[in-house]
Design a protein around this nucleic acid. Structure first.
Lengths: 245, 245
DNA sequence: GCAAAAGTGTTCCTTATACACCCATGT
DNA sequence: ACATGGGTGTATAAGGAACACTTTTGC
């Protein structure tokens, strides 16, 4: 029998080493700078939504070189005292006006030549948003801003840097996260129909799903609740669901 | 119906943007340095093995401040023109003599105060190794080096920096990777018994498994083949298996 | 012969899959 | 009335979980 089960307890009783630092002798920050030329560090954000029955990703048109005229993921430099996720939140707010979007760190891209100017290491993040969150931002909501546009995630233009790689990994990551129904819901408005949710799954997984099996599986989890409201439209109204609190 | 299926083709036909760079006007690298104070970037490696019926992780004793006397994950600075994974391979070779170990990038740790000297962003990697790979390195194989030692992954000492967080995430990641039998095999020698493999699963998942169900599930995948060799020891000899090529 | 670890099948239950028709609304 | 998308149940297959005894070796 492995000893892991008994030993587990000891881990949580270890004191947080951050509380001990102050008592140690610390070398000067400058000491580092001479020894190691430092790369720049950026964050990039792959922001997805689901609209017009398509999985969409937000891209920004670059105005300055390198890659002027190309499309790129939103992102930018990490400030020297800034958490990585805070940097991603700040860049997202600066470039889209969106705040308090849940961000998942995804992968760090560090090929030495990925930026032709200098060494830039980029920590890529994944973010999912429902269309209703865009309502406050007319440019993004209307999908016609001169420099920011939603693109079908399966039909991207040429991208700057290695952003095509980042998008590909983002899509793979998103796919692997669909086991959690909540993930798919994050791509939709707060209230949505089961058909919309199924379309999200079909679009991200890129395969058709059986309607009855899908609905049973989703409703059996008890993660969704009926809002009591129904859609109004051309045909039979559909129940609107929301994530249960 | 989602349009993703038809559109998928267009992605792969997009030209690699890296081939286009040379034609663009490029700003000078120095331009960056003034605008953004740059962090240092390191790689850390959580190297696991399975020995003495325990999941073990390799730690290095720190001799210099900060955290002198503490144990830490192997790792070090990324050179300015170096791939992240190459840096991790180099550091692993320098500190343990191990080469050509498969490395998986795991997570990037960027809390501004995680290193008391200066801003250091660390890209953490996960590596798994069988005991037979350690045979060439007597110090590591004997587990008695003054400054490098294998520790039970569930009973770690106090760790430098945020390495306790890194170890915790490494263990979680390792757990999530056990769906692939190959992952568990990477913690064992090239030839191993099914009981050893089961112990790996039980130790990493931290739960007992049924012997008959486990053996059936593993053998049904057809990923293992019988080496024809058996163990010699105190009791009934066991078949030794290896990963099928 | 006994201690210790290796090896081996069957039953039950849960979960996934395949499949087709009626319903509510707008025009 | 018809076009359009919303909504529903059942039967079969597959996979996961529970469970105990015999075999082979060293001492």
């Amino acid at each position: 029998m492995a000893t892991s089960i008994q030993d587990r307890q000891e881990v949580s009783s270890v004191r947080d080493p951050r509380q001990i630092r102050a008592t140690e002798q610390v070398s000067k920050p400058q000491q580092y700078a001479h020894e190691h030329p430092r790369p720049s560090v950026t964050v990039d954000i792959a922001l997805f939504t689901f609209a017009q029955n398509e999985l969409k990703i937000l891209l920004i048109a670059r105005k300055a070189p390198p890659f002027a005229g190309y499309w790129a993921l939103p992102g930018g430099f990490v400030a020297i005292g800034e958490e990585l996720e805070a940097a991603a939140q700040r860049e997202l707010a600066e470039e889209t006006g969106l705040r308090n979007v849940k961000l998942d760190q995804m992968h760090t891209f560090g090929a030495p030549d990925r930026d032709p100017r200098t060494r830039v290491i980029s920590v890529a993040h994944l973010a999912l948003i429902g269309q209703d969150a865009l309502a406050h931002n007319p440019a993004l909501a209307a999908d016609d801003a001169a420099d920011a546009r939603w693109w079908n995630a399966y039909a991207l233009p040429q991208l700057a840097f290695d952003h095509a790689d980042i998008c590909a990994i983002a899509l793979t990551r998103l796919r692997s996260m669909l086991g959690n129904i909540e993930t798919a819901c994050r791509l939709l408005p707060a209230a949505f129909t089961l058909t919309q949710l199924q379309l999200v799954y079909e679009c991200v997984l890129d395969e058709p799903l059986d309607k009855r099996n899908f609905r049973r599986k989703v409703l059996d989890t008890d993660l969704l609740e009926d809002t009591g409201v129904k859609t109004k439209g051309d045909h039979r109204p559909a129940r609107l669901y929301r994530l249960r609190a």
